[in-house]
Design a protein around this nucleic acid. Structure first.
Lengths: 106, 106
DNA sequence: CCCACCTATAACCGATCGGTTATGTGTTGG
DNA sequence: CCAACACATAACCGATCGGTTATAGGTGGG
């Protein structure tokens, strides 16, 4: 749907804090208040990261009372998965050639 | 071996020009002179991108006469592939649920 | 030998990044 | 009703990014 988001996905996951946020959300949705505990940054800084992740289509928000519950939208990472898959042959090929001499793979 | 490089890999692939360079090198090694043709940037700009890709361990250089031949070192992308694989279950699970309880492990 | 070629680096520039503090906006409990 | 809470946004700051032009350094051909 939002194809423009895919353009921003690579930039979104380039930051280690944002990857940490995604990792945290992989365990389940969370309000901002709980999220900010896990990172040594201020709440506004976290909110800016969340905005970037939102605009990249990697997270979704749901208003619950006065909280905003963020949850992972991992299918936005398909753009990354599809991209990197093109290069997978470069190390699986090498593994195959190695397999000519050694019978086991990794 | 170079584990520090993995830290920089995500940032290296965040730039569309650098992903273009990797894509170009997937077709085979190339001197800088030939590479610069494919991009609407100056030669020094390209050299700076190549330095970043080098430091991320994604390309390797070989001196051939007065040229420097760059080739892809795609196994550096394993860090990205491994990272994104953790999230793959989020969309494969959803696909599985359409069928039955086919349980995929890691 | 030396000049032209190939590439890297230096120096600089505007834009963007990731952080801060201050403030605005909406919501809920007492 | 209103004060405190939860979060987003604004305004600002130094650092880094991605680009440029200028130049240095190494190599090979005439």
């Amino acid at each position: 749907m939002n194809d423009v988001a895919a353009i921003h996905v690579f930039r979104a996951v380039a930051d280690p804090t944002r990857r940490g946020i995604l990792d945290r959300l992989a365990d389940g949705a969370s309000p901002v208040r709980a999220l900010v505990e896990g990172f040594a940054i201020s709440q506004p800084a976290l909110s800016k990261h969340l905005r970037i992740l939102r605009e990249a289509g990697l997270v979704a928000v749901e208003k619950v009372g006065r909280e905003r519950h963020y949850r992972l939208q991992a299918d936005g990472l398909r753009a990354v998965a599809d991209w990197v898959r093109h290069y997978e042959r470069f190390w699986t090929d090498r593994l195959d050639r190695l397999g000519d001499y050694l019978d086991g793979d990794e």
